[in-house]
Design a binder for these strands. Structure first.
Length: 285
DNA sequence: CATCAGGCGAGAC
DNA sequence: GTCTCGCCTGAT
C-alpha cells in the first residue's frame, strides 16, 4: 500500500493503493449501515466517529476526500489499512472449495474498526431484520437524535446519537423510528449505558471473552449480536457471529464442524466472506 | 396469504 | 442449563 496526497480545488484528496479493498463490497457486507452510494453513482459517502467522508475507487486506487491528517488519525484505522487480507485469503485450505469460493467472491471485504456504542445500537436494530430496513431505522435515529453537522464543503450530515440522547427518548418515540419491538431494547440499553451500568471505555480494553460477557448484560444483546459488536467495534477477529445464514452454511457445507482450530484468531474474517457470499451470490449481476 | 429478515427475552421444565 | 414461543414491519 502506498499513499499519495494531492490537492484538487479546495478539497484535499488522499489516494491509497490497496489490494483486497472494495468499497462496494464493504458497503454491501452489512457491517456498516451509514455508508451509501451517492445518488446511485460510484461515489460513496460515510459518517463515522462524527466525521463525514466521501470516497470512490478505480481498481486498486482508493480516493478519499480528506486531509492527510484525517486519514492518519481516523480513516486508516477505520478501514483496517494495515491488515493484509490477501495473506488471510491465501491461508485458506485449498481443498475447502466452498471457503475458497466465498473468499474469492468477497475478497474486497475488510473488517472495519467502528465505534463501540454505534455498533451496540446498530446490531440490536439488526436482529430479525433486513439490511434495507436496518439502514432506514438507523437513519431515523441519527436524524432525530443525532447532532446535525456541516463539513468543510458545506455538506450537512447527522452524527450518531449519544447514549444520553437515546436515553432521553421514550419508548413511543423510538417506535416512531420504525424499530418495532426493538424499541424497548434500545431504550433499556441506552439507559443502562447512560447510567453507567456498563462502562464502554472499560469494554474497549477487555479481551474477547470478558467483553462478550459484559455486552451480554445489555437488553437486546444476545450471543450473535455480542459477537458482531466484538468483531466490528472491538476488532476481535476470533468472534464468529452465528446467524441464520451462517447456520445454514455450517449445516450444508460443514456437517462435521467448521475448522476453527485451523483459523484460530481470525475465523471472524472468514465468517464475513461466508455471510457475504451466502447473501449475495445469487443476486449479483 | 405465508414466510422470512444478520435474534432475543421470558417463561416452562 | 435447554427449549419453545411470540414479536414490529416490510419485502417477496
Amino acid at each position: 500500500m502506498y499513499r499519495q496526497s494531492t490537492i484538487t480545488g479546495i478539497t484535499q484528496m488522499i489516494k491509497v493503493n490497496s489490494r483486497n479493498f472494495s468499497i462496494e463490497q464493504i458497503c454491501r457486507s452489512g457491517q456498516c449501515f451509514r455508508m451509501t452510494a451517492v445518488n446511485d453513482t460510484k461515489r460513496y459517502s460515510l459518517v463515522a466517529f462524527g466525521k463525514y467522508l466521501e470516497l470512490s475507487q478505480d481498481g486498486d486506487d482508493i480516493f478519499l476526500e480528506c486531509t492527510q491528517e484525517e486519514f492518519d488519525d481516523t480513516w486508516s484505522s477505520y478501514f483496517d489499512m494495515d491488515t493484509d487480507y490477501g495473506h488471510i485469503i491465501e491461508s485458506i485450505d485449498a481443498q475447502d472449495k466452498y471457503l475458497v469460493s466465498a473468499a474469492g467472491f468477497g475478497s474486497g471485504i475488510r473488517i472495519l474498526r467502528q465505534d463501540l456504542w454505534e455498533m451496540i445500537i446498530s446490531f440490536i436494530v439488526s436482529q430479525q431484520n433486513n439490511i434495507k430496513r436496518i439502514r432506514r431505522c438507523i437513519n431515523f435515529l441519527c436524524e432525530r437524535y443525532g447532532e446535525k453537522k456541516v463539513n468543510s464543503s458545506g455538506v450537512e450530515y447527522y452524527d450518531f446519537p449519544t447514549p444520553k440522547a437515546l436515553a432521553e427518548a421514550s419508548i413511543d418515540d423510538l417506535y416512531a423510528c420504525n424499530l418495532g419491538y426493538r424499541s424497548r431494547y434500545i431504550y433499556e440499553t441506552a439507559n443502562s449505558v447512560y447510567r453507567g451500568d456498563i462502562d464502554l471505555a472499560a469494554v474497549l480494553k477487555m479481551d474477547y471473552a470478558s467483553a462478550r460477557k459484559e455486552l451480554l448484560k445489555l437488553c437486546g444483546v444476545g450471543a450473535k449480536v455480542a459477537d458482531c459488536i466484538c468483531l466490528f467495534a472491538l476488532h476481535k477477529t476470533e468472534a464468529f457471529p452465528i446467524d441464520t445464514h451462517i447456520n445454514k452454511v455450517l449445516a450444508m457445507q460443514y456437517p462435521s464442524g467448521f475448522p476453527f482450530e485451523r483459523y484460530s484468531g481470525y475465523s471472524g474474517i472468514l465468517q464475513q466472506y461466508i455471510f457475504y457470499y451466502d447473501l449475495n451470490k445469487m443476486s449479483q449481476r
